[in-house]
Design a protein around this nucleic acid. Structure first.
Length: 274
DNA sequence: ACTCAGGCTACGA
DNA sequence: TCGTAGCCTGAG
């Protein structure tokens, strides 16, 4: 860390925690790593830089914003140590949970999560990040130190050709469909936030380009439904190799299956990083 | 040239 | 109901 003077506030974190793990475990695509345990990003129209070091989280915002807003975004009030114990149903899961112990499931905006995971389908992470970054730069509102995620209204006014610079391929009409559904009111994300998980799932699956995997990611990362267990190619491989054909994640991991999924995903993909 | 990357849809049997 | 070709794009 070269310049620590930008950090106006700090907060003690007792449990194991890691910004590197939390922001690079595949749940988000817009946070930028400036240095070891130092990240900068935007959510809900606010921009912040974090630094974590030996049980203290430092933030570039004031104390009030850190404790009232970002602490919730980072899910810092939840007892992840207890959850790690709960999902450690066998020795290997316990190891995965232990090595990913610094992960927190962010409370991202449902709308951003929806579009981000539509874009993620059959795509690699660097390209997903590139597409989303171009989307925000082109159609997001410019805010202090970056771009906000484009609103449903802004995207609903666009055509397929307008999205051509994104180079998101066949996903472009999916993005427009969701934008139109949300801005037109047929899909009310704010109302869904207090609905039961099954209701949200059905609403998401009704959108073109949203299947069970994308919907599960939106449930977990956008609606913070921690029981959602997205199954992608990595998870499918890991389940097959490490858990056997009869393993039922929902049954085994229960209420916190989504957090277990992140531990397994982090482990499975981590082995395959350059 | 060819495969694959955190899928989904449409179509055929 | 189940399996899978085809879909945009770009890196290796």
């Amino acid at each position: 860390m070269t310049d620590t003077s930008i950090f106006l506030s700090k907060m003690k974190i007792s449990d194991v925690f890691s910004l590197d793990q939390t922001f690079s475990c595949g749940q988000c695509f817009r946070w930028e790593r400036l240095d070891r345990e130092c990240w900068r990003g935007t959510a809900y129209g606010k921009t912040v830089t974090f630094y974590f070091d030996t049980s203290y989280l430092y933030a570039s915002c004031d104390e009030a914003e850190l404790s009232a807003f970002w602490a919730k975004y980072l899910d810092l009030d939840r007892d992840y140590a207890a959850i790690r114990r709960a999902v450690s149903v066998d020795a290997q899961t316990a190891r995965y949970a232990d090595s990913g112990a610094g992960i927190r499931i962010l409370r991202q905006e449902p709308w951003e999560a929806l579009i981000s995971f539509i874009i993620s389908q059959c795509n690699n992470i660097p390209r997903i990040q590139g597409i989303i970054s171009r989307l925000c730069a082109l159609y997001g509102e410019k805010i202090d130190g970056g771009f906000a995620f484009p609103t449903p209204e802004a995207l609903s006014r666009l055509s397929i050709e307008d999205l051509a610079p994104l180079r998101c391929g066949y996903r472009a009409p999916y993005i427009l469909s969701s934008a139109q559904a949300v801005s037109g009111g047929s899909l009310d994300l704010a109302v869904l936030e207090s609905a039961d998980t099954e209701t949200i799932l059905r609403a998401l699956l009704a959108l073109p380009g949203v299947g069970i995997k994308v919907a599960s990611c939106v449930l977990l990362f956008g609606f913070h439904r921690l029981e959602a267990f997205p199954v992608d190619t990595w998870i499918r491989k890991a389940l097959k190799q490490d858990y056997g054909p009869d393993f039922d994640p929902a049954k085994a991991f229960g209420l916190y299956a989504g957090i277990a999924q992140q531990y397994i995903f982090y482990h499975a993909r981590g082995k395959n990083l350059a």
